[in-house]
């Protein structure tokens, strides 16, 4: 009896690992194929059976791609937007969240309710009037439009406030008695203590700005202003047969996100987990 039970268990574990291996394979194959294709001539990309490791890797694809489209400019534009948006988001959100969580003033609950109520409203529902407003302010085809659009989210304020709620009020009281101003408390106590929450917000904002598609598609129609997403999309639709170059550009566009993701993955996971499980 015990013997069969044990054998069954071993069989189960083996089955799970085989299943897991197959899933992992399916998840990874697209990336491997992408890298492999990025090192081939167009005529070899689709040769069958698949040659996973090209005999003569064509590194030249990674040189040509920078001349074929202004890929460097696209990456610079995207990085610029992502850094500015993330910085503004962190600064203004943690600033506002401090007042919402540690200061008493008239209209606090009403204002906060205003923030909460809008979190659920999809951006797509008001993107048209927002565009009309931005255009009348002369912001169409400027990076400032994307910054204004992304930098003041209700989500950031909400996330930071949740975290500050967990910091004891006595800490702020003690600092006040020691003569620190509210700005001083924010800068010297709250910001250093909220590094995990700030990291979560950083990675969320950075990745969503880097990967944003519809926003830049509406606002940035001039090529020199484009971000990597819509720039890459433009390249793919213009040169749809340049398979090798398309794959090389795709690899290049994923690398920055991969680096940020691997570095801050812990905070990303914590952030998602805390949004799903009520705190």
């Amino acid at each position: 009896m015990v013997g069969t039970d044990k054998r069954l268990k071993v069989a189960m574990v083996a089955f799970v690992y085989v299943l897991l291996f197959l899933i992992v394979l399916a998840m990874l194959v697209p990336y491997v194929w992408m890298i492999s294709a990025s090192l081939k001539l167009n005529k070899d990309v689709f040769s069958f059976p698949i040659q996973w490791i090209p005999e003569l890797p064509r590194w030249k694809n990674y040189v040509d791609i920078w001349n074929r489209i202004p890929l460097g400019l696209f990456i610079f534009n995207t990085a610029k937007l992502a850094v500015i948006v993330t910085f503004l988001q962190l600064l203004t959100s943690s600033f506002a969240a401090y007042a919402f969580s540690k200061l008493r003033f008239k209209g606090r609950n009403l204002l906060f309710l205003g923030y909460i109520a809008t979190i659920a409203i999809p951006w797509q529902a008001y993107m048209v009037p927002q565009f009309i407003m931005m255009r009348s302010l002369g912001l169409n085809n400027t990076h400032l439009a994307i910054i204004c659009l992304q930098a003041f989210s209700a989500f950031g304020v909400f996330l930071m406030r949740q975290f500050y709620q967990g910091i004891p009020d006595e800490l702020c009281e003690a600092a006040r008695i020691d003569g620190l101003s509210e700005y001083g408390i924010w800068a010297r106590i709250m910001v250093p203590l909220s590094k995990p929450a700030l990291s979560t917000l950083t990675i969320f904002t950075f990745v969503s700005t880097w990967n944003d598609f519809l926003g830049p598609m509406i606002y940035l129609t001039k090529t020199p202003l484009k971000t990597i997403q819509i720039g890459l999309r433009m390249f793919i639709s213009q040169y749809s047969a340049e398979y090798g170059l398309i794959m090389a550009a795709s690899v290049v566009s994923i690398i920055p996100v991969l680096i940020v993701f691997l570095g801050l993955q812990k905070y990303f996971v914590q952030g998602i987990a805390s949004s799903g499980v009520k705190g």
Partner: peptide, 11 residues
């Protein structure tokens, strides 16, 4: 988190 345009191109 991988860029949609890039992974869609592979797909």
């Amino acid at each position: 988190v991988a860029s949609l345009v890039a992974v869609a191109a592979v797909w």
